[in-house]
Design a protein around this nucleic acid. Structure first.
Lengths: 201, 201
DNA sequence: ACTGCCATGTAACTAGTTACATGATTGG
DNA sequence: CCAATCATGTAACTAGTTACATGGCAGT
């Protein structure tokens, strides 16, 4: 008796591909991967090449993209969005439930289980993470520079703003966590007295 | 002839299970899921129940956990970490490469493709995300309150600090993005420069 | 008696991976 | 001629999902 027809949606990765093609340029599987890795890796894991090719095959079956070969049958096949593809992408944007980001943060996981390893190792892990985040921040700056101020990239610039906050946050959080642990370890090790809090259980 | 033996590691989800059992309490598959969903969902997607049961079966095959049934063969089976399980977890913490967090952020993805939908929809999406982030923040506060100041949860408290930064950041980023778009749309509309590309459908 | 939570698992499927095989084109 | 990059795809596998089937136990 439900009133909703509830057509379902494709996996999000499909919309990554459709979306990249929505900027108007025809792209090969290879280029798709380069673009995804250039601009989207900041907020969405880049799928493996083989996955992209399979995705393209599926989307073509569904009539959402059309591929055209050039330079012989195998050498190069560039895809463009069909009208139905554009409509499907729009349907997703307009109607798909806004589900929360998927996060698998193995660094924080390690931190959570920090009682099982040494403070030194924990410091190394956090420092490595901090450096990674700084690196991403730098890469993001480069991307942003390339965006210029063309209106095509209006939303991309806003996304870059999100990214700066996110990666800056990760770097700061790693530093803060390290500082907090250091403080805690220091207290535990150096002064025998003065801190009864640490002895219970 | 390579110097490195390079034993490989289990999927990260396995270490989630091992780690939860490292706090010393025997847990059933069901409880494992509850605990993961209570404390780890803030930084690591909670696996499906069926996945947890399969994980436990595998870990038992590998001798990393041991399960004991009680109350008949089917009704309840609680698992504990074996010495080898603890060693494997420690090996992962100490030696596994620190790989970056895996992120699939469909909200930012939508923002990136914002040129394909309406400003109103974009506002709704961002607002929904902001509220979700605020909700997570509130939930995190509750968890934190429950942690008290026992030393068992030292690292968990540091993780909570990370979470506050992360979810606070998401909420702020959503708000900021919405503000930036509003500003931009206002400018675009009042100046009369209509977008040429988006008239159909 | 019934409801809600505790509890375990299987089956079928989907999404994604790595490893491998193959070849064209371009620039030094 | 050689290396790097562009380019496409298959095969085998792994991780994870949803849907389903089953049943115990506690409280009202």
């Amino acid at each position: 008796m439900s009133a909703a027809p509830r057509r379902s949606f494709l996996p999000t990765t499909s919309y990554v591909v459709l979306g990249l093609l929505s900027f108007g340029r025809d792209l090969t599987g290879y280029e798709l991967e380069r673009w995804a890795d250039f601009g989207m890796r900041f907020f969405f894991t880049t799928p493996a090449m083989s996955q992209i090719y399979r995705e393209l095959a599926r989307l073509e079956d569904l009539g959402l993209v059309r591929g055209r070969s050039s330079g012989g049958e195998r050498t190069r096949r560039a895809y463009r969005l069909t009208a139905r593809g554009r409509a499907e992408l729009r349907r997703w944007l307009d109607e798909a439930p806004v589900d929360p980001p998927v996060l698998k943060h193995s660094v924080v996981l390690r931190l959570f289980f920090g009682h099982l390893t040494s403070p030194e190792r924990m410091r190394v892990v956090l420092e490595e993470h901090r450096r990674w985040a700084e690196g991403m921040l730098a890469a993001l700056d480069e991307v942003r520079a390339e965006l210029g101020d063309e209106p095509t990239w209006t939303h991309a610039r806003v996304v870059a703003g999100w990214g700066e906050r996110f990666y800056g946050g990760e770097a700061a959080a790693a530093a803060e966590a390290a500082a907090r642990l250091e403080q805690h370890d220091g207290r535990g090790v150096s002064a025998g007295g003065r801190d009864r809090r640490d002895r219970r259980v």
